[in-house]
Design a protein around this nucleic acid. Structure first.
Lengths: 178, 178
DNA sequence: GATTGACATGTCAGAACTTACATGTCACCT
DNA sequence: AGGTGACATGTAAGTTCTGACATGTCAATC
């Protein structure tokens, strides 16, 4: 269901887009909130068309199909946003490795943490670059006067910063014991 | 693969356990890092037995099967921890709703944020209770001198606090505009 | 003696997801 | 004219995950 809502949402923000656009859009903007490859997106768009949530507005060059959201699609999205109780992320390999870390001796554990740190630093840089790029050029605003995706991006940046701080503290703690 | 590693890890920490124990253990301790229900755990244990990573050490009352990790299992787990590049969480309904929030008008958006806040508060209370419970009674330490799962739990608590702070700031921002 | 509820293990259908395969268009460069 | 690479859409096989169904044991309560 969530993939559906993500697609409806991005389509709603873009006005109209092709499956290809949506795939790229996912890579760029929604990636930190929801991931999906084209092999998941194309079939889902077909199903959503069958369900009347989106329509093929036009067919462009190179077989390009331009989708747009229907009133039913808009209604479904609204209902989900307002009525659905969301859950936080259920699976994180980082958290899992953190969980299992005490199985290793301090030297090895430190090496694993070092890698987690690299990961977090790279990710933070990516997200901050995205933020900077977004705020350099004007972007459509939503009904609430907030730029589209800004809240989620902010959340992603904060989470990544928290991870980074955690990894630093964990390393310091381990070094104290070694 | 990650489910496998989570099971090997918990088994390694517990010494030995049944599928039922592992299911409960997942609910209690690893839930914030990796989730799995019994319908996933039982078949996976069977496969792991076939692959020689765990063995049925004994069969207890009520058809209870007690598993323990084999040297091969231990090796596999170590190799994964040391060699596998982990990824952060890929999907979060919370982040997705945050992303889509600008589709709603300020009043509705505020209501959604209110719900996210409740979610984060409840989760934080849960995790902190878990922490308190763990630190009230002695728990086996790992090789690195750190209590099992403490690092991951700490990470979970920090992430939840970050989410809570974010939601408060987002609400304040929206209220300023309304 | 019957019922309730935690203990305990499984299967199955369907949904969601990943990875690889497959095909073709169009613009630009050499 | 040929090659490269971004554009563009799909399919298929296999894995993972969810939610529901199914079955039986044992201890304690009523």
């Amino acid at each position: 269901m969530s993939l559906r809502m993500a697609l409806l949402g991005v389509l709603s923000a873009y006005g109209s887009a092709s499956g290809y656009d949506l795939t790229k859009g996912f890579e760029r903007s929604v990636a930190h909130a929801w991931q999906a490859g084209h092999s998941q997106i194309y079939p889902e768009l077909a199903k959503m068309t069958a369900d009347g949530l989106v329509t093929v507005e036009a067919e462009g060059a190179r077989g390009r199909k331009i989708y747009s959201i229907t009133p039913e699609g808009r209604a479904e999205l609204r209902a989900w946003l307002i009525g659905h109780d969301p859950t936080g992320p259920a699976r994180s390999e980082i958290a899992l490795q953190a969980f299992l870390l005490p199985l290793l001796d301090p030297g090895e554990a430190l090496a694993v943490l070092e890698r987690l740190k690299t990961y977090a630093e790279r990710k933070l840089a990516e997200l901050e670059a995205l933020w900077a790029a977004k705020h350099a050029s004007p972007v459509p605003e939503g009904t609430s006067g907030v730029r589209f995706g800004d809240l989620a991006l902010d959340l992603g940046i904060r989470h990544t910063r928290t991870t980074l701080q955690w990894v630093n503290d964990a390393m310091a703690q381990l070094e104290r014991r070694a």
